[in-house]
Design a protein around this nucleic acid. Structure first.
Lengths: 154, 154
DNA sequence: ATTGCTGCAAAACGTTTGCACCTAT
DNA sequence: ATAGGTGCAAACGTTTTGCAGCAAT
């Protein structure tokens, strides 16, 4: 167990939901929280496989969902028909800018966004559960896209 | 041809890109622009099949992409690993609120969002291409979710 | 005549499911 | 003991691809 604090949160969540506490689930939790940046469920499964883990694909998918439910992970979608996850443990809320040339994802925090979902929902008679705000852009000076611009074949 | 004005836009776009002008493409264009609300590529394909159209799945997928490129359609993704399209012909830009109980999609326009992507991008050295702002929420008074609440099996 | 587009079927991709076995409670 | 979780493989739904024939230029 690499992250005791997160493990406690997860354990409590599992108990309260009458979900069993299994070693596989904590193995997935550790791998997920240590993953740098955003990852797909299958990315994680393959990484774990290369590290000789014995957890199955089904368990990875299932456990990631549980980790989202207890807020240790956040689910993202950057419009590629692929569910991505990122750690939400000790992180503050942020949004994303995705470079449409090189795929790079930049995280940003803008205070103006904060109250918007709430505001809009109360106008419409809804209660916010979550929101997603993604900007798709290209870098102005091609610095960030240097790799892409040098290697793209067109 | 049901929408001559859109057809002209599409035709110009195809010519400029050295894409061929084929009856199938206009058949897809008509069906897409007439579709009420948001639809997946396969939804459209199946609808066209039931209407005895002979266009193939591949042509539908390919043509929808072309229609996005010439701004007659907008591509959306509401976090279900499914690409959705909606008409952008003579419509103003708007964002979406998705009810996480019944799946209903509400379109809204909020002036505060308008300048945000631009603002954030210029700070970070990027040029906006597009953005997506989705709010996931539940209705306060269960009016909108009435159907769901009555029929859900849990 | 040349390309590009089409229809079809098959493959690819991420994800979910069914099932027999196993294990935390 | 027993619900629930696991691993595995097969199924699933959406999307992409390969290919032979066809049609717009």
């Amino acid at each position: 167990m690499k992250n005791k604090q997160a493990a406690d949160i997860f354990k409590d969540f599992l108990k309260n939901g009458k979900n069993r506490i299994t070693p596989e689930r904590f193995e997935v939790m550790d791998a997920a929280l240590e993953y740098e940046g955003h990852f797909g469920a299958d990315d994680l499964f393959i990484l774990m496989k290369t590290q000789k883990s014995r957890v199955s694909r089904a368990t990875v998918y299932n456990t990631l969902e549980l980790l989202v439910q207890c807020n240790l992970l956040i689910k993202r979608n950057f419009g590629e028909n692929l569910t991505r996850y990122e750690s939400n443990f000790k992180k503050q809320r942020h949004d994303h800018l995705i470079c449409i040339d090189c795929g790079k994802i930049v995280e940003f925090i803008n205070p103006k966004i904060k109250s918007l979902p709430e505001e809009i929902c109360s106008e419409l008679g809804y209660t916010v559960e979550s929101y997603s705000f993604n900007i798709f852009a290209r870098c102005k000076n091609s610095k960030s896209c240097k790799y892409y611009l040098e290697h793209k074949k067109d």
